[in-house]
Design a protein around this nucleic acid. Structure first.
Length: 1072
RNA sequence: GGUCGAUUAGCUCAGUGGUAGAGCACUGCAUUGACAUUGCAGGGGUCACUAGUUCGAACCUAGUAUCGACCACCA
């Protein structure tokens, strides 16, 4: 006999270990079986299980367990992602916290990377064990890590192949730069958030004191403003970037500025004697209706300006260093500004490298943080009188800058002033969208840097086609719109990261040899720029910036061969830029002892998603043609949340199709919901509303819960409020609900909608469901149900047994269909409803008289059916609740096998017996009707009542004979007999053609009973009227499908019959 | 601005042309019987609004209102 209750803690980990030890998670590799593969979205090595993972992996596990039971050769591919930035961040933080004054840079690259590996071995991957707690049936023996050697091989091969095809290239571009991590990031890793900002309006004086007539007109062409101006008005939210302006642009159609297009204006900041002049140009980009209609163009610090600058050949001056501080390098400002001036006036040629070397930050701003620089620039311009001035708003005492909306938009002087108003600088308070790094949280700076890019546009085309052709399907399908939308507008993918933790880029640089005409030394090496003098092992020589030649190959050995062939001499791998330059210099000056050309590997690593994008095939051994690869590519279903469609799904599609001969990586992409808290808020530590899945499995006390929710809050002052709420809501913390309850809840809520608002109450409900099944099994054991036998539907005698196996058949068919169609909620509710409402509430009760009765044959049949039906229920429930069902399987019979290895109930229609179903339907209805009436007329629960059945036909009479005992028992009757007429004053209910008569006239009040009948009659006549109206409509009868019409007629007849009988009953009562 | 979505019982949500559903909550009754982590019975909804298509609309179409997500944005 099993215990009184199921204790998840006593069994879950034990059962999991048994599965694992027995190799239950391995693919069968049965060549006759259909392969079925699911690639886990590799969690970050730094990660721990959150609700999103729990949902994601529950769904995958349901699919895998289901398909495994259906006989497929299943591989659920597990693993982890090295998560470049996230992991580097964790280890750097740890270094900082450990007190030592070591940081990443002082440690050096190799030592730091080694440290990260150490961390990974010790602390990484807790999430994989948490997945085991959830019951995930992954093929752990094939666990992969995106930084494993074999995956690195795949990464290098992909990179080199794409490079050789020209689909990966290096370019100087404006990229999103994270000043905190000091690396480029892709535009997906940027979060645009609306923040309070200001827009300043400044005057850029025209060169040489020139003036023009500035004319503003309204829509009708009436002149609203006309004045002489010696400046052009510019609006900006980032004044500090003015220092790098290359031009001012206006729209070609903007007549206000037509007189000054082509002229020069002055950037009103920096030392007066070296103010830079920049040209006023035209471009389609400026919107004449926004701001002043004139835009400053700072190509190196703004994505829109970058495009304008590129079109117009405007120099792009970089102003900041990699930490987001104003540059403090290069020659002094006066010298640089002079060169810039000649460039602006077209008197001097410029190229990228020359511009890049120019630091146009005036001395007083050098080394300032960008936000400090902004304040300083604003203050200086304003002090000098170049801010656009407007009348001070009345009423408000404070300056416009601190009063939202008070500094009205529009140009100065556009409204007439009644008196002489006080003037203040025009600063608009407005919401601006600002980019933040999704990991660092700092403001992202557009930076002009050399980076590696993937030509995503080319790769996207076949990936779009694959979805259009239906070779890969999104479920729910509306997600394909999101996919198309992004893929069709895809930008080049920046894949290089200035980090240390990740796949090194398989590129080595050597010096570029140019033609002998331009070469300027005996080795033909062209030095394009000078840098600082440096004391080197080769003497005090100049270090040189050298144009680099790229050697790209999977292994250094290949590069070594290519390079030495290219240079015609030995090459040597060097570790850093300094040594590289020294060696180039020494080499070129003939001072090198060994005459070896230095090669330096690219310092950068690849975007984490570059390696995750290969996951479906890199994990299966590619580029080797392994069995795993042949069998499990393409995968069946990718299960993920929508937030990584772009990051991951799109990249896997592009790279999978590219490298696997055009074959898509997966057939379906199931996009599941995001799990939120029960109020619909996104769970986040910072908000203090996180529910930890492990807490739900193991239980957690209220004190721990409070502590968890109040640590790491974004607003620590909210802690008392959160504590109060938690204590009120969960006074006893969480019970140990177990993994099964959590999984079932998630499955039941996994609809095709967007969000799941998870409530703990619901988990408790499904824990109770497990208890229900557990106790039903206990009941079966007490009654000596037979487990481990087979059932032949045709051999059954009792209609109740025929009925329950038919119900089971319907249930399992529904579950199969629903899972195949990714309707996990329907699957869960079908098996829930069957187990609780059909099996426990009815079948078990109906079986009691038989199991306690004297009919040995009936008893034996029922024991067999009861055991079998329960076993099949375990099977059907197993994908959802693997632990409790496996324990029940283990403990109900002497078994040597596992439930998870059983065959899914492939029941067929031979299990569904229509006449048994109708018969039991009648039994259930009869009992329910009697119970309902009893309750309505307040018959005491314990009282037994005599009931007779009037007007029964032959079939009903037969059913009464067969089921009399059980009906009497379940409806608490002391008599249940056929009769010709009802005694006066009895209480009646209608079941099909017959009237159920409760002979309890003495127990009830006639008036109340009449009222009860009237209520029912009222309801009935309403429905009848509706049906009559519909059936009376010729158009309905003519146009609606015949079966619908027939159905409605039947229903009408039935309702009329019931009404007539109840009316008679009412009249009889009234006549008394 | 573009795209996708939501609006159904007190709450959280299913349903998607043919009799409005679940879980929780609520009300009444039942206490040593597999299970109180229970059973029986019950109350509760103009399916956001308007117009259309249809024999028939919660469901399809168009529009309105409110709320949300993602993407892109005006310096």
């Amino acid at each position: 006999m099993i215990d009184q209750r199921f204790d998840p803690k006593a069994h879950e980990q034990r059962i999991y270990q048994r599965w694992e030890d027995a190799g239950c998670f391995r693919p069968s590799m049965d060549t006759s079986a259909e392969p079925y593969a699911i690639m886990i979205p590799p969690p970050n090595v730094t990660g721990s299980l959150h609700m999103g993972h729990a949902l994601n992996n529950t769904i995958q596990d349901i699919l895998c367990r289901f398909e495994r039971m259906r006989g497929k050769n299943v591989r659920w591919q597990p693993g982890m992602d090295h998560a470049g930035i996230a992991t580097q961040m964790v280890v750097e933080r740890q270094l900082a916290a450990s007190g030592g004054n070591q940081d990443r840079r002082s440690m050096g690259r190799d030592a730091f990377v080694e440290k990260v590996w150490e961390w990974k071995e010790e602390s990484g991957g807790t999430i994989l064990n948490q997945l085991k707690r959830l019951g995930a049936s992954c093929d752990w023996e094939n666990t992969k890590f995106t930084l494993d050697d074999d995956l690195n091989t795949a990464v290098n091969k992909v990179f080199v192949d794409l490079y050789n095809e020209g689909l990966i290239y290096r370019a100087k571009r404006l990229v999103n730069w994270d000043p905190h991590f000091q690396t480029a990031i892709s535009n997906l890793e940027v979060e645009n958030k609306e923040v309070d900002g200001h827009m300043w309006h400044f005057k850029y004086p025209l060169a040489g004191g020139e003036t023009y007539t500035y004319v503003e007109k309204d829509e009708d062409g009436t002149i609203t403003l006309e004045e002489e101006r010696d400046y052009i008005s510019i609006a900006t939210t980032r004044p500090e970037t003015m220092l790098g302006d290359g031009a001012v642009a206006v729209h070609p159609s903007d007549s206000r500025y037509a007189p000054i297009v082509g002229k020069l204006c002055e950037i009103p900041v920096g030392p007066k004697e070296h103010r830079r002049l920049i040209p006023i140009i035209t471009d389609e980009y400026p919107d004449p209706d926004f701001g002043s209609g004139a835009v400053k163009i700072t190509g190196a610090h703004d994505f829109n300006d970058y495009q304008v600058a590129k079109r117009g050949g405007i120099p792009m001056y970089a102003l900041m260093d990699e930490k987001g501080f104003m540059r403090d390098d290069g020659d002094d400002y006066a010298a640089v500004a002079e060169v810039a001036q000649r460039i602006a006036e077209g008197q001097e040629d410029f190229d990228e490298a020359k511009i890049a070397a120019m630091n146009l930050v005036p001395d007083q701003y050098r080394g300032l943080d960008r936000f400090e620089a902004r304040k300083a620039v604003v203050a200086d311009i304003t002090a000098e009188g170049n801010a656009v001035m407007v009348p001070k708003p009345k009423k408000k005492a404070a300056s416009p800058a601190s009063e939202p909306g008070s500094g009205a938009a529009g140009d100065s002087g556009s409204s007439p002033e009644p008196s002489v108003p006080e003037l203040v600088p025009l600063v608009e308070n407005k919401k601006i969208m600002q980019p933040f790094g999704d990991r660092s949280g700092v403001v992202i700076e557009p930076m002009l840097t050399d980076q590696w890019f993937v030509d995503a546009e080319t790769l996207a085309k076949p990936a779009i086609a694959a979805v259009r052709d239906g070779r890969t399907k999104f479920v729910p399908e509306n997600w394909d719109r999101t996919y198309y939308n992004w893929m069709e507008n895809i930008e080049p993918w920046c894949i290089s990261r200035q980090l240390w933790w990740g796949h090194r880029i398989p590129v080595w640089y050597g010096p570029e040899i140019v033609s002998s005409e331009t070469g300027n030394n005996e080795f033909g090496l062209d030095f394009i720029d000078r840098s600082e003098v440096h004391d080197t092992p080769h003497g005090d020589i100049r270090l040189l910036n050298v144009r680099k030649r790229v050697f790209c190959a999977e292994r250094f050995a290949d590069v070594e061969r290519l390079a030495s062939e290219h240079y015609g001499c030995k090459v040597i791998l060097v570790e850093d830029e300094i040594e590289y330059r020294e060696r180039v210099a020494a080499f070129s000056l003939g001072k090198a002892q060994d005459y070896a050309v230095p090669l330096l590997q690219d310092e950068d690593v690849l975007d984490t998603w570059f390696s995750s994008g290969l996951w479906p095939f890199s994990t299966q051994g590619w580029p080797e043609q392994t069995d795993g690869l042949k069998t499990f590519y393409p995968g069946a279903t990718l299960v993920t949340a929508f937030d990584i469609i772009f990051f991951w799904v799109a990249r896997m599609m592009m790279l999978g199709i590219k490298f696997m001969d055009g074959e898509v990586p997966f057939k379906d992409v199931y996009i599941h919901a995001i799990v939120r808290d029960e109020n619909g808020k996104k769970m986040s530590k910072a908000e203090g509303n996180v529910i930890d899945p492990i807490d739900l499995i193991d239980g957690v006390g209220v004190e721990t819960l409070v502590a968890k929710r109040t640590s790491n809050l974004r607003q620590p002052e909210k802690a008392p409020k959160i504590e109060k709420e938690v204590r009120k809501r969960y006074p006893n913390g969480f019970d140990a609900y177990g993994a099964d309850a959590l999984r079932f809840t998630l499955a039941a809520m996994a609809t095709k909608g967007r969000d799941i608002n998870l409530s703990v109450d619901r988990i408790a409900g499904y824990r109770n469901f497990g208890t229900k099944l557990w106790n039903a099994t206990r009941f079966a054991q007490m009654n000596e149900a037979k487990f481990g036998t087979k059932i032949e539907p045709q051999s059954l005698d009792l209609s109740v047994n025929k009925w329950i196996i038919g119900e089971l058949y319907k249930c399992t068919a529904q579950v199969s269909e629903a899972i195949e169609d990714y309707r996990f909620n329907d699957a869960a509710s079908a098996v829930y409803h069957f187990t609780w409402d059909v099996l426990c509430d009815w079948y078990l009760e109906l079986s009691k008289p038989i199991l306690n009765g004297d009919d040995a044959e009936a008893k034996s049949e029922t024991q067999a059916v009861l055991g079998w039906v329960l076993e099949q229920t375990f099977v059907a429930l197993h994908p959802f609740m693997p632990f409790i069902t496996e324990v029940l399987w283990e403990q109900t019979s002497d078994r040597s096998d596992f439930l998870m290895q059983q065959t899914w109930p492939g029941l067929n229609t031979s299990f569904a017996d229509e006449s048994a179903a109708e018969e039991l339907d009648w039994v259930l209805k009869t009992i329910s009707q009697i119970r309902s009436v009893r309750s309505d007329v307040n018959v005491p629960a314990g009282a037994k009542v005599p009931v007779s059945l009037v007007g029964a036909n032959d079939e009903t009479a037969r059913r009464v004979a067969a089921h009399c005992d059980v009906i009497m028992r379940m409806a608490r009757l002391d008599k249940f007999e056929l009769a010709d007429a009802a005694p006066a004053g009895s209480v009646k209910a209608i079941v099909d053609e017959a009237t159920v008569v409760l002979e309890i006239a003495d127990l009830i009040d006639a008036g109340e009973e009449i009222a009860r009948l009237d209520k029912q009659l009222g309801k009935l006549s309403g429905e009848i009227t509706g049906l009559e109206k519909r059936l009376g409509n010729d158009a309905f009868v003519a146009k609606a499908p015949a079966e619908v019409v027939a159905e409605q007629r039947d229903r009408l007849a039935e309702l009329q019959g019931t009404r007539d009988k109840l009316s008679v009953a009412r009249e009889q009562l009234a006549a008394l």
